[in-house]
Write a protein that binds this DNA or RNA. Sequence first.
DNA 1: TTCCAGGGATATA
DNA 2: TATATCCATGGA
Length: 276
Amino acid sequence: MNYEVTDGNIVITDRDDFNIEHILDCGQVFRYRKEGDEFTLCSKNENCLLKNENDCVIIKTNNVGYFVDYFDLDNDYSKIKRQLKEYPNMADAINYGHGIRLLNQDPLEMIISFIISANNNIPRIKGIIERMCTSLGENMGDYYAFPTLDALQGADVTFFKSIGAGYRAEYLVKVSKQLSTLDYEGIRSMDTATARRTLVGLMGVGNKVADCILLFAYKKTDLFPMDTWSKKIYAALGNEPTDNSTVMSKNLVAQYGELSGYAQQYLYYYYRQTSN
DNA sequence: TTCCAGGGATATA
DNA sequence: TATATCCATGGA
């Protein structure tokens, strides 16, 4: 990745592997907003501002180190895309979403956010999360931090219903309690299967939500989250039809291996954006 | 009015 | 282990 740090800002000098809208609109992140020709983004208790300038992307932040890691800037996406293009039916998706990067997000934020995402749509997910942050997160001046586990544990079912979480309100209360006895940072060192089993033990976390958490918080890429779109994609790729998500996921991981998580993001973004 | 959204929990056999 | 049903909410 070609980037430099000047005047305390991160400057991306190669936009082919970094496209703000590709990154933000591919379904991995919920706390961002477009303001004119700029984008503001919150993660945990940090924030930044993204902006296209000439042929560069400028990332303004007071925590450069956090966002160099967050945006996965030391990972070579040109190489990943080259490898994935060797597969059939993949080149169009990669060319379309060429600037996608897999973000390294906060585990607690991903666990809570993707429990909310279940059987829900993205605009509504964003609204629920934002209302939760406004009520439970620390006021950082320009934005509200994502709530700490302590803050989440202080909220009840009535609160989560009041922000629109619906039937997931009870999951959020239960999972906040469960997390007090789970070393969710320790999941990072587990193999994918063990990590998935651990997460599925949480209330409101099934295989799909677990895979999203593993991919977006822990960079486990030997998985392929199966949602309603992935199931359509599975058929569109010409795979043998089945209605079993586990079978579909396993077959796809057998094809793409450690690149499965990346493949899923390019395919998800491409099919979702072009089928409207 | 019905369908759908980055699904999962629960009951049942 | 596999299948059926239920679940809040809001936009299309």
